[in-house]
Design a binder for these strands. Structure first.
Lengths: 343, 343
DNA sequence: TTGAAAGCGTTACCAC
DNA sequence: GTGGTAACGCTTTCAA
């Protein structure tokens, strides 16, 4: 912010005090029309651009909300097949971000996106937190301690985490959809040997596995342990799939996310195993990439934009001290049959 | 930013001065290790989150870059056919934004996205400008006067505008690709009656029409005036197309953007006119929606992510006072034949 | 309706 | 290496 004209310059030029200049912008009605016009004219002539830093310091709030995401969202996948080179399509994180953007705009908040690569001592998320009135963070994107620390100062909504004492979260019903999906595979397709691929670190992922297990249990089947894989890390997914290529192929790979499901499909295809002919694959999220994949991915569709919007609304209500955001019901995430399960 | 612990609190707790606390973060090497650790411990215990406002005010820069976009990017299209309900796919603006995000992260800048709907006196873009060290704005997204005013204070890159005295721009070669596209239609398909649909307000759009006209001229054909239409405003595009449904159908609709081309295709289809059987349609941008449209859109692919990245780089070099970003060559935008031209 | 002045939380210059 | 102490530009009482 190369320093430019300030309130002082505008005040001088308009022949008023700096207080009047400030009033002109913040409480126009408290200023006589003639005065107001004089001030605005002076500001215009000078090319006055109010400093948000100064305003933020004086008022104690910035008027902006922060969004902190994963790194993986940021860098393109280096290579990969047409199918997994999915980075040209918006992922879960991107679609949520879109909702956040939309709702911030509605509420008049500026949106601050975290930048990484800081060689500083402070975790990035704290840096971002220092710039905003409220923070939205994807669970797992920042160290829990950092989140906790931030939450002591400003309202925080952690997406995909558990609703805790400090950080709120947007509730999504991960269970119902996954249960339906599992039931579909077992009941409609008659599958018996199902493998679950995905990490179990976050509550939302655990809910997915639990629903999967519940579905199997209801059919009198034992649920195998989840095979570890991380949506961020394609290599881990590939490894998870390959592990099952040796012996008898399972009937279906039930994946924790679309991202992993797409990688799984590619891995299988590359190994000469047709999907869904020889094995079914399912995902979770309902991303664009999954919709246009070949075969179209069977999945559970999260209301991503709605999640982003809800996060902002929660923050806004906390910031504006309005209604303590009554316990909103979890957002629905419907089962969406595709072709990758054999339908 | 509910006020929390400050440098003073940390200093007291660590038994040092506030200057030392500041040094600990900004110039760690200048502080004795023991001191540094004491400070960090105190900060940690207190849950210290440095105020970016205060820092920005004191240092004269915020460490963040702003991106100002159109409104249309923000709100979902209410309805529309599967084809034009394109809002689920990233548009030109979104893909550029992605590049901006990526490059900001690389350079360690936080990214500030403009929020609209302010009931304030200041144009939004000025508000955003007051928050950042440099601004990227899509040409046409903000009043030229506002841009000019902002450019007096901080470096501005205006995307799609002309390189002017104040605002820089990222140069994209709009001509070559469109010329190739036009030649293709005329030469390879033998089309004679081509209609150009699109607005002419911005330099980049004019370049597209000019290339179109040049292509026709080279074939000894007269170029019709462009039919006004705005990519933001589907209704205007629909109207533009309908105007040509009455008499003899042209051979092709050459559109200024993919967005308009998709709307055109839908309009034609809805009118029972097959694309490309009875008339060809082409776009410009190379968006995802165009790639997966049926028929796949013939277009010119802009290097959208590269545009966003370049914008940040230009800003970064201006801010860091490094090389005055040597006149970089315009980015290439290749012709990409699809199926919508009849190929 | 307007002005004076006290902060707001950092940084950075200048001593020590 | 560390501490004092002016800025930095704006908002917001409190008076006038």
């Amino acid at each position: 912010m190369p320093r430019g004209p300030t309130v002082y310059d505008v005040a001088t030029r308009a022949g008023v005090s700096i207080a009047t200049v400030s009033f002109t912008y913040r409480q126009p009605h408290r200023v006589r029309q003639a005065t107001r016009e004089a001030v605005l004219a002076a500001a215009d002539a000078l090319g006055y651009v109010p400093s948000a830093s100064a305003r933020g310091l004086a008022r104690g709030r910035t008027g902006s909300i922060g969004l902190y995401s994963f790194d993986y969202q940021q860098e393109s996948t280096p290579a990969g097949s047409a199918q997994t080179d999915v980075r040209h399509f918006p992922l879960y994180v991107d679609e949520v971000q879109r909702g956040v953007q939309l709702e911030c705009r509605r509420h008049g908040y500026a949106l601050m996106l975290g930048a990484g690569h800081s060689a500083r001592h402070l975790p990035d998320v704290i840096d971002v937190a220092g710039r905003v009135d409220g923070l939205i963070a994807f669970a797992g994107s920042a160290p829990p301690e950092a989140i906790a620390q931030v939450a002591k100062r400003i309202p925080v909504v952690e997406l995909g985490g558990a609703t805790g004492p400090d950080a709120h979260t947007v509730l999504v019903d991960n269970h119902t959809g996954m249960r339906e999906l599992t039931d579909h595979l077992v009941r409609d397709h008659g599958f018996r040997r199902l493998v679950f691929i995905g990490q179990q670190g976050l509550p939302e992922f655990r809910a997915r596995y639990d629903a999967f297990a519940a579905g199997l249990a209801a059919a009198g089947l034992a649920a195998p342990d989840p095979v570890p894989s991380h949506p961020t890390d394609d290599a881990s997914t590939i490894a998870a799939v390959r592990r099952h290529l040796a012996g008898a192929l399972p009937d279906a790979f039930v994946c924790s996310t679309d991202q992993e499901a797409l990688v799984a499909m590619d891995t299988l295809t590359a190994a000469g195993i047709g999907v869904p002919d020889r094995v079914a694959v399912t995902g979770f999220d309902g991303t664009v990439a999954g919709r246009i994949a070949e075969p179209r991915l069977t999945t559970v569709r999260q209301p991503m934009e709605a999640v982003g919007r809800a996060a902002v609304r929660i923050l806004a209500s906390r910031l504006e001290g309005s209604a303590p955001d009554a316990h909103h019901a979890p957002l629905a995430a419907p089962f969406v049959p595709g072709a990758s399960c054999g339908c």
